[in-house]
Amino acid sequence: MDFDFEAPLEELKEKIKLLDEKAAAGDATASSKAAQLRKKLEAQTARIYSTLEPWDKVQLARHPGRPTITRYSKEMCDDFIEIHGDRVFGDDPAMLCGFARIGDQRFMLIGHRKGDTVEQNIEYNFGMANPEGYRKAMRAMHLAEKWHLPVVTMVDTSGAFPGLEAEARGQAEAIGRNLMEMAALETPILTIVTGEGGSGGALGIAVGDRILMLENAVYSVISPEGCASILWRDGTKAPEAAKALHITSSDLAELKVIDGIIPEPVGGAHSHPEATMENVKAAIISNLKELEKVSASHLTENRYKKFAAIGRFN
């Protein structure tokens, strides 16, 4: 069991397992009973997943079994040529960039890289990029602009890395410059929040013409734990903070910060990574097709208007 909210499903799963064993031993009634219970399990899973609290979604968004950008690049894409380095300091493994192709659709894929294993996570710094990661991403975007390739950015990070050297090398400047340069980039930018959208570290590659979120992804100005410890002075109030901050895909769609939600199969992306990647693939193809029709000058003007309109209440 991955989550507390899945507890009611455990008993059913256990029963199905026993019946399956009996069925394997030749018990015909056990097999039909198991099929019945499977239907029931599916219905219950759907019901539970449709009524998740924001804090539950935070847990889902952070689940290590969700497809990482490594899997998207290898399994969803038909071809991928990684590019390395910011040409100034080094290569940040927490940010993956490269030429990608799905069928005939070519694009520049850029995103935070979490690992699929503990060892990989250590190597990739748990998807927390350093300044050279943001600068590599910007370099890849300018390259895409030059080659007339659209850009797809995938956001999945708890935040930009808070380290001594990250500060010394200008973490803040690197992110700020990306925000400025992405606003003026003369090629389409599609952003997909696939897991965790953690504050400025997420935004640093997320100034898109279209911004989509996977259904169970979250996107927030601060982690619920951080917000709870500051505004509630109690880190355990994170579930309350998660609700107050409005961080789920449906919240952000309602606030008109994102343009669409990519559905996840019942049971979440971590339970069905292949089907999830199919949904993401379809979203990339259809959105890029539309964005590529728009002229460069209209693109940047529309992008400016899109962000200028966020937070215009008075």
């Binding site: 992405m182 927030s220 107050a244 952000l252 910060v257």
Partner: peptide, 9 residues
């Protein structure tokens, strides 16, 4: 919340 974050962009 997210509206503040978007003011950076």
């Amino acid at each position: 919340g997210i509206i503040s974050l978007m003011q950076m962009a």
